[in-house]
Amino acid sequence: MFEVIFLQFLNGLDKGAAYALIALGLTLVFGTLGVVNFAHGALFMLGAFCAVMFRQLLTLETVTLDPEKLSPWGAPLEIREPLVQAWFGDFGAVLVNYSVPASIIITIPIMLLVGIALERGIIKHFYKRPHAEQILVTFGLAIVAQEVIKSFFGPNPIPQPMPTDLRGAADIGAFLGMQANVITYPIWRLIYFLFSFVIIGGVFAFLQFTTFGMVVRAGMADRETVGLLGINIDRRFTIMFGLAAVVAGLAGVMYTPLLPPNYHIGMDFLVLSFVVVVVGGMGSLPGAVAAGFLLGILQSFASMTQVKALIPGIDQIIIYLVAVVILLVLPRGLFGRRGVMEA
C-alpha cells in the first residue's frame, strides 16, 4: 500500500512542478506590476515552441539526388544530409539528440525579449486600469500569440523526442533501499522535477540574496517609497516581467517531451495555474509553489482507480473543487498576505 501511495505522490510531482513554475511567474508579475496576466500561459506555449523551432533548425537537411542509385520504382534516390552533422560531425549528432535541453540556451534570450517587449509595448499602459481590463487585454494577447504559432506550426501537436540516454525509468525504490522494481519512475519526469526545483530555488535566491532582488522585494512591499528614494523601480519591474516570461518559457521547453506541444497548450495550463495562484494566495511566491505541488499531487491521487471507484469523476474536478473550498474557507488562499487583492 505504501508503495502505491508513494508512486502516486511521485506521479503528481512533474505536473505539480509545471503548475508551480507557471504560477510562480504569474505571481511574480502580479506581485511586482499588479497586473493579472492572462497571457502567461501563452508564454509557456511560446517557450515550448522555442524547443520545437530549435529542433527544426537543427534537423534542416540538404536533399540531393543520387543519380547512381535508383529506388525500387526507378526514381533517383534522395540523399538527406542533416546540415548540423555535416558541419559539426559527432557533436552535431549529440546536439540533435539533446535538442530539448539545449534549446534552453536560445529560449532564455528569446523569452526575455518577448517579456520585455510585451511589458513595454502594451502592459505598461494597464497598471492603473481595472483588473477586468487587464484580464481582457492579456486574454486578447494570448489569442494573438496562439494564432501566430498556429499559422506557423500548424494545429497539430508536434512531439519532441527526449534524449536517448534519458529514456526509460529509474528504479527509485531500489535507490531508497526498498524492493527493486516496485517503484520505477520515468527519468525525464524526475529531471523535470529537479529542474523546476533548481529554477524555483534560483528565483528565490535571486530575490533574497542580491541587491536587485532586495530592491524588487522592497518595491513589492511599497512601490511609492522605493520610487521616492530615487530608485527606478519601473525598470526593475520590467526586468521582473522578463524574468517571469523566462521562467514560463523554460517550464514550457522542458515539458515538451512529456506532452507534445500544440498551440493551445498554454491555455490549458493557464486556467489551472490561475486556480493554483488563487489557492496559494495572490502575491505570495511560496504560496504559488506550494499550491502548485499540492494540486498536482492531489490530482494524481484522484486519478487512482480506487479513488475513482469511490467518487466517480473526481479526477476531472478535484483541482477546481479544492480551489472552491479553499477560496470559501480561507479568503486569502493558503499563504496570502493581508491586504493584497482582498474582498
Binding site: H131, I317, A323, V324, L327, P331, M341
Partner: peptide, 28 residues
C-alpha cells in the same frame, strides 16, 4: 457560492465551476 467573493476571485470561482461542469459533462 461565487458571489461570496468579488474581483478576480469571483472570476476564478465562476471559471472553476464552469470547468467542473464541462469536465463532468464529458466524463461522469
Amino acid at each position: 457560492v461565487s458571489l461570496r467573493r468579488s474581483g478576480i476571485y469571483f472570476s476564478i470561482l465562476t471559471l472553476a465551476f464552469a470547468q467542473m461542469s464541462y469536465n463532468l459533462a464529458y466524463s461522469v
